[in-house]
Design a protein around this nucleic acid. Sequence first.
DNA 1: GATGCTGTTGCAACCGATTGCAACCGCGAT
DNA 2: ATCGCGGTTGCAATCGGTTGCAACAGCATC
Lengths: 332, 332
Amino acid sequence: MSVTLKDVAALAGVSRSAVSRTFTEGASVSAKTRSKVEKAAAELGYSPNALASSLTTGRTKLIGLISNNFHNPIFLEVFDLFTRTLQERGLRPLIVNLTDEVQPANSVRMLRQYSVDAAIVASSTLPPSFAKAFHDAGVPVVHTFGRSATSPEVHVVGIDNVECGRMAARELLARGYRRIGYLGGPKDATSAMDRYRGFMEEVEKHPDLNVSHSFAGAYSFEAGRAEMLRLLADTPAEGYFCGDDILSIGALSALSDHGIKPGHDIGIIGLNDMEMSRWESVDLTTIHQPIKQIITASVDLVEEMLKDPDRYPEARIFPCRVIERGTLRPRP
Amino acid sequence: MSVTLKDVAALAGVSRSAVSRTFTEGASVSAKTRSKVEKAAAELGYSPNALASSLTTGRTKLIGLISNNFHNPIFLEVFDLFTRTLQERGLRPLIVNLTDEVQPANSVRMLRQYSVDAAIVASSTLPPSFAKAFHDAGVPVVHTFGRSATSPEVHVVGIDNVECGRMAARELLARGYRRIGYLGGPKDATSAMDRYRGFMEEVEKHPDLNVSHSFAGAYSFEAGRAEMLRLLADTPAEGYFCGDDILSIGALSALSDHGIKPGHDIGIIGLNDMEMSRWESVDLTTIHQPIKQIITASVDLVEEMLKDPDRYPEARIFPCRVIERGTLRPRP
DNA sequence: GATGCTGTTGCAACCGATTGCAACCGCGAT
DNA sequence: ATCGCGGTTGCAATCGGTTGCAACAGCATC
């Protein structure tokens, strides 16, 4: 069926070791045998079997990429960047879709069966214990978009969600909103809770404010829309921090149903700055999360763990900034 | 480091074969040894190495999933469905992101190095020759969203794009549009050309019409928007068939810049019926493409090829239908 | 011509599994 | 007691590579 070392060796008239060595970086082969081997290999269309070699080297270059976030458009950007960044460095993403799954056991077992060199948990809605399960099973892991504070055992890359909460609150206050609300993601997401904490921390400095909060069922358009519709049925606030752009866009849709003009009647500030937020019809004021840097840093960490698996865990936290567009009223 | 057959065999006091057999479906092992082995395996936390066994069995259960479409939100749905459907059947998606690549050679080599059991090319903007390159290299392949007519050598799953073009044209005509246009995807995409062909075929039956066409640079929001802005600078048509929902949404954004009301002033019909098209703020009249069925059928074909690699190639084409929303004027 | 050195080569064991084959076991039938 | 049988078991070869080790080739030096 497929061409193996042995075939090439036979055609080139050398031993199998010689062939193996011409295909491994830095091995000792003379120019003469190398060229003989290369000629034979080209003739047969040989390319080495990565899985067979992984047996002896212990390296597969497979990286588990785990997420449960297939309903937030930002993840199209995330997957694009992850897959490209990994493959640029000779690593191969093996995807695990956790949409229906919450327990790590299955994913851990599966990725160990495929001997992945490392795993990336790309989600803020999976608990820190999830990433830790990989660590405990001996799989190097980085938790992208994870919470840094309470998981000192795995690498974490992301943003300071508490600070983002504060930032959003300050922004609403600076624009004169006094009745303000937090519309967060699902309660069991660390990101939703951390943003909430920062938001509250900041607003509690001002006792005269009227503050409310609620949590959507998911980071999705539908959940954001449903939650905002619920809020509009009662007495809504003047300004909202929505814990994610897709929630914001759902909320904007609800506002539009009621003929409410964002930025004019009710203010909305999101978080992420995904491509769609720049669309003229959306024009969402939001907190920019530096996705590209986060993903590059995550893959950097993966590579460093491949060199040194016992590397001391580290948090790489990137600063965010407000992007001014049309859904908050101007600063006075 | 990790637990192997040998360790389990030693602890259970049996041969390695016995251990192997208890983990392979339908092998002959007595209840007694099986339970001894299972006890030992559980104690050591053993799980078999899928890659090592692939060496002898010739099956990896790895499926290459190849795409270049990371800027069209429909692909979030596509990836979600593909990854879930594959893993439900015990197959593992190995992603290849072709954003910067057009030649198949690299992907083919890479996927052969990882001994994938099959490959899925999920893109309508890659030429039929791309999928064929896998076939020629001995990798079973299905081309999802591919063109059926001219590639009898590989399995194709998708829709009849020519018929969709006709359908869109008929729909515009039925609503009384006489100056109509096709705003398609990139010229080198078979889907863009086939939809164009069907569209023209239908409108040419009516010599009194005023028909125009143009092609966007990509299936993306920005490309659709830019193209529509260009059209608006001259004399635009009354009704457009945009060759994809994301192009439509870009076009709608351009219309909104000019204060043009879709459905009232200018009609737009898209193709795909992605989640976003249902959003109230978008409310796009479009042709529904049955993504779920297409993906299920693709994975079905993959499984059938695993059983019979020389299976005669087949096209599975699913019918589409118009979803009426707000961007075309009502039928008279 | 013997010596030593460096660089190249092949042998053989090994990575973690699977599997054909032959040996073996217990057991009922003769 | 012998035989035959179906079911279980272990041996050893194999899958496609890698790699430590020892042998060796070529060359310069003494």
